[in-house]
């Protein structure tokens, strides 16, 4: 059994790296994570200012130029990527966790549990996302609860709060099919507990699709965070994120286009890489795929 699982994992990994661009994307993302983890070796600090040296063009001294306070944008982007990636990762994780629970309960038990949970899911799917994100961001930050004053946390929570419906629907769909499969009915007949069946027998079979949809969610979470920060409702200064650096650049688009360009480029590259990884995963888990090469 163990041997089989290993070979299964190996097969998927091999299939994944057959998708060349997905392989490259993994590399790009790894470099990014590595670089942001090592941000402290950068010659500048993200907060050190040199006001007389503001709006420097990108050059050897400052690779991505400097901002209005004379801070090194490259360094700020490195530190910013920590926050942006954390927001993307944690909000995806949270949303999938909620989604899996709702979807699994709904799909496994069906009946009135399914009806109620799916009504709630539908209600959430009807919400005009961006409007509610803005309202929620304001609402949570106004609660004057100390831990909600951490804008990073608020952004993670609200993104998850408005995206768990997608994995929930996905997982429910998978459970509806899988619970009728023979090995499940057999286990049930043998008296396996519900929890055990859900966690040990059905869920492992859903991992592929969940991973694929997780990449999509993470890509969109990163874009959402940057959009919220751009509108001023996301992560607050002095914490740098790609979106918040971009938002301070709004007034300087002509004077210092690089302040807007590089954070945007980082978002673009990251999201692109994540999308390719998702594509690779889809291929890896999809039994039909035949590669041309």
């Amino acid at each position: 059994m163990i041997e089989r699982e290993q070979s299964m994992g190996w097969l998927i990994t091999r299939r994944f790296f057959k998708h060349k661009l997905a392989g490259i994307a993994i590399g790009v993302l790894a470099i990014l994570v590595f670089a942001s983890a090592l941000a402290f070796v950068a010659p500048y600090s993200p907060t050190d200012q040199e006001p007389t040296n503001s709006f420097q063009k990108p050059g050897i001294q400052h690779w991505f130029g400097t901002d209005e306070l004379g801070r090194d944008i490259f360094t700020r982007i490195l530190y910013g990527s920590r926050v942006s990636l954390t927001v993307g990762l944690l909000s995806t994780f949270l949303s999938i966790a909620v989604g899996v629970i709702v979807g699994a309960l709904s799909g496994y038990f069906g009946g009135w549990i399914d009806t109620i949970l799916m009504r709630i899911t539908d209600a959430f799917l009807t919400l005009p996302t961006i409007f509610v994100l803005i309202l929620l961001a304001g609402f949570l930050r106004e609660q004057q609860v100390p831990w909600l004053q951490n804008s990073v946390l608020v952004v993670i929570i609200i993104i998850a709060a408005l995206s768990w419906m997608w994995p929930a629907r996905l997982v429910r769909g998978l459970f509806l099919v899988l619970r009728e499969r023979e090995f499940i009915t057999a286990t049930r007949a043998l008296g396996g507990s519900h929890l055990r069946i859900i966690v040990q027998h059905i869920l492992p079979n859903c991992i592929g699709p969940i991973l694929v949809s997780g990449t999509l969610q993470m890509a969109s979470a990163i874009i959402t965070e940057s959009g919220l920060s751009y509108l001023g409702f996301g992560v607050q200064p002095p914490t740098p994120t790609w979106g918040s650096i971009l938002s301070t650049a709004q007034n300087q688009v002509f004077r210092a286009p690089w302040i807007a360009f590089y954070p945007g480029l980082m978002i673009f590259i990251t999201v692109m890489a994540i999308n390719y990884i998702g594509d690779g995963l889809r291929d890896a888990f999809d039994p039909y795929v035949i590669h041309a090469d």
Binding site: T47, D48, Q49, P51, E68, L69, G138, R141, E142, Q149, Q236, P237, P238, T248
Partner: peptide, 25 residues
């Protein structure tokens, strides 16, 4: 306002005073 805050934080740091920015709505 944000630029001013961030600038003052650095100014104060130079004399050993820590200022923590906390912006509210």
């Amino acid at each position: 306002l944000q630029l001013t805050e961030e600038f003052i934080v650095e100014n104060l740091k130079a004399v050993g005073v820590e200022a923590r920015i906390q912006n509210y709505d």
